[in-house]
Structure formats: C-alpha cells, structure tokens
Amino acid sequence: MIVAEAKPLEEILDSLKGMSKVLVAGCGGCVAVCLAGGEKEVGIMASALRMKRELAGEPLVTVEETLTRQCDPEYVKELGKKLDGVDCILSMACGVGVQFLAEHYPDMWVVPALNTKFAGATIEHGLWEERCGLCGECVLAQTGGVCPVIRCAKSLLNGPCGGSQNGKCEVKPNACAWQLIYDRMKSLGRLEQLVEVAEAKDWSKSRDGGPRQVVREDVKIDG
C-alpha cells in the first residue's frame, strides 16, 4: 500500500490561512489502512483544526467526507455534493488523491494534509516500512525476493558496500538489504547466482522519464 503520515498541524493551519469553510476529505484506501487519512483520522483532524482556529479567534467550519478511494474518478465525483460554500478542500489522501481532487474540481483550492512516504507494509501495529521502489523493472528474481533498489541506502545491485556490519546498514538502524539477500540465497543454495555481475539499471523505466502510464488495450472500454 501507499504509506503516508500527517503533516505537522502548524503546516496544515498555515495552508488554510484565510479559509473559513474547509472540506476535510478522507480516503478509505491505503491511508485508512495505515491510519493516516481514513474516516477516524478525518474526524480527529477536523476537530483539531476547529479548536486551534477557535483559540486563534478565527473560527473554522469543517465538512467531513471520506470517499471509498480518492484515486478513482467515480468516487471523486461524489464530493461535488458537499462543496457548497467551501473555500478549500483539505485532502487526507496520498499525493494521488490530492491531485485527482484538484483535477476534478478546477475551481477549488486543494491542499494536502499528509506527506506521502512510500510503498510499503505494516511490520507491526504502529510501524510501517518501505518495500518497493516502484522502479518499473522488478529485480526480485535476481535478489531472492529482497529489493536492493529501495532497501539498500545506495541502491547497489551487486552486493553490499563496505558499511555492512553485523547485519546492519551503516546509515540507519535497518538491516543491511544485502545481508538479507545473502542469507536467503545461501539458505536456498543459490549463492553462485550472486557472483553474476548485475547490469546497470534502465532508469528510464523508473521516474526519470516523467509520469509513467500503463496502457492495457485488452481491458479498455471503447465508447
């Protein structure tokens, strides 16, 4: 899932300066799962904003609405009914949701409440970790199911740098991705596979070529 976390409240208040009625828009997708922008967090955010603005002598009216998903035009349309007198939408979705709202409501000012962090998963309650670098050309078959592109601080494709010690990366308290790769390949009897020199990556398949598209002619519905 896409993992996100709330921006500091002060930053959000700053982006809502001068607004008197704000629609706080939640998302029932990934950000609800990672407890950042679902219905519950929308309620908490809206009341925190109202309280802060009340204290500042600039009361704020909030409207709360959580869509099934903000990254789907079908659900985004539903928000239209709630925009009466609204100056601004505060999106509690990931960056995709914020942009979808901005695209669908060209006359509306839309600001983000979250920082979108990464594609990852829940490790334990309250801890999420990145797992996929969205590089566009998966190397997991070469690396035993552990991604060096995103889990190695240097995205090394040919083994650990000199800073790997006792299983740890020198940069963070995280595990060294290459230690994990090594351990797995060894236990599966595939160490010799790691002696092959991995070719340089084609980064044009990653973010470097501008926004990427996936086109599937077979599932397109031509009107």
């Binding site: 601080a153 240097k154 090394l156 494709l157 083994g159 740098c161």
Partner: peptide
C-alpha cells in the same frame, strides 16, 4: 560506491548511484 551522504556536510543531498561500483568498473 562512495560514502553515504548522511555522513557528510550536505545531508539533504540526493545521492545518485545510477551505476554501482562494479558497473562503473565495467
């Protein structure tokens, strides 16, 4: 490969690592 930027005096820098050391050798 090069020391990670978090050890240096520009910790907010973006690292490149377009190639790794072995790919550079090649």
């Amino acid at each position: 490969s090069g020391d990670h930027q978090s050890f240096g005096n520009h910790q907010a820098a973006k690292n490149v690592f377009d190639l790794d050391s072995i790919q550079l050798i090649k």
